[in-house]
């Protein structure tokens, strides 16, 4: 029999990813509620993106075309008109910057490789003693 307390999630420190579920279900309740939990209606990621883009796009279009009858000051309009281009460029810069930074800081696990090599030697010797023919 298992006796685990439902532990409260710790915010910091732990590599905790999913925070969207309250920690209610124990190991025993898993089988039943997995089925019902899956039924929550959600949009596909593609639909979410399209909705988001459509919303932003139509807002921008409405403002620049003056469809709402708003008389925006001309300085505002000058900023608004090329805004999508600016956003696109800055998103691209963000992507390149992030990927570049992550490539530069990608750990090279030299120690892990060395440790593995020495353990391989050890394993070979031990396995040979136990009569393994490689």
């Amino acid at each position: 029999m298992r006796t685990t307390t439902p532990r409260r999630r710790r915010g910091g420190g732990a590599w905790l990813v999913n925070d969207f579920r309250t920690p209610t279900s124990g190991p025993l309740g898993e089988e039943e509620d997995a089925g019902t939990r899956g039924k929550a209606v959600t949009m596909t990621k593609l639909a979410q993106w399209l909705w988001g883009l459509a919303l932003l796009g139509s807002t921008w279009a409405a403002l620049t075309m003056g469809a709402l009858g708003l008389e925006l000051p001309s300085s505002c309009r000058e900023v608004l008109w090329p805004l999508p281009a600016y956003l696109l460029v800055s998103a691209g810069c963000y992507a390149l910057g992030t990927v570049g930074y992550r490539v530069a800081t990608f750990h090279d696990c030299e120690d892990a490789a060395r440790e593995l090599q020495s353990q391989i030697q050890e394993a070979r010797a031990d396995l040979a003693l136990r009569g393994l023919r490689f």
Binding site: A14, A34, G38, A112
Partner: peptide, 17 residues
């Protein structure tokens, strides 16, 4: 999608020896 919880542990990946 099924609301399973996922924990993560950092690992070192040593490409095929």
């Amino acid at each position: 999608q099924l609301n399973y919880t996922i924990g993560e542990v950092p690992i070192s990946f040593v490409d095929r020896v």
